[in-house]
Amino acid sequence: MGVATLFAVSIIIFSSMELLPGDFGQAILGQAATEDTVAAFRRELGLDQPAIVRYGQWLTAVLQGDLGTSFSGRNASGVDRSREVVDLVAPRLRNTLFLASMAALFAIPLSLVLGISTALYRNSVYDRSISMTTLTAISFPEFFVAYILILFLSSLSSVFPSLANVDADTQFGERVYRVALPALTLTLVIVAHMMRMTRAAIINLLASPYIQMARLSGASPTEVILKHALPNAWAPIATVIAFNLAYLVVGVVVVEVVFVYPGIGQLMVDAVARRDIPVVQGCALIFAMTYILLNLIADIIGIVTNPRLLYPK
């Protein structure tokens, strides 16, 4: 299933090249480009061959780790200063993963604890205030959260830097310090979502008749949670986490732009603005793969914890 989806996704991403308007060669190379250079450029992209053949070539190349060549750096004179997409993407992917894992490290435990505890003390003052806060928080655009944090923690008090400019030589400690604000922004945004979904999943579970049955038979609240609810909760919780990590991947794009962090999200946004299709394709493929992979893992966790599938009739 996951493979089939990936395959379908790769076709969609590949077709993005097909949908380009006819005169884009001119657009990329500039008005001064002669017909010859444009034709050579089209030939280089293989646009003179049938789509199926090109898809095959593209897919094999991608599987070998070759994402093609960037459009930028080309000009009308035919001099080619363009770079391989892989070289552009690889270091930035590392930065993005670093930022995302920082955020996930704080967000997952925090939101699970909040989600489960609010579900248990449903309708208490504690639950209501947390729910109110998170409902407000999920309504905020990411950049709003980011700029509020900048205003208070950077502009007014200079606790953290407002620009997260790191490079390959930055030391680990320094790196953590510099990504503190973007990571904090992501954590806040994710926790609100994840906590609400965890709460809903747990409440849903607690309402099922067998949990009532366990309560009737005199099990203590802790026992109800640990022995009766939790074994059935792995699947929904895994889904919630996967869904939100996937959301994190998307949220990263905006946050990287705000903090000028050299990650893959910013690369993609720049490429979109320049209409540098090979780079856009490469980034989209990476985002889509992460997203599908995370959902796949959640499905697998759901399967291995379901007795119906583990012990068939």
Binding site: T5, L6, A8, V9, I12, I13, S16, L19, L20, A246, Y247, V249, V250, V253, M268, V269, A271, V272, R275, D276, I277, V280, Q281, C283, A284, F287, A288, Y291, I292, N295
Partner: peptide, 21 residues
């Protein structure tokens, strides 16, 4: 729909906007 939803929609939107402007 399953396939469309397998790509995060912001990312998909970015790809499409880069093509169509």
């Amino acid at each position: 729909v399953d396939v469309l939803m397998a790509i995060p929609s912001l990312i998909f939107a970015l790809v499409l906007l880069s093509i169509f402007g």
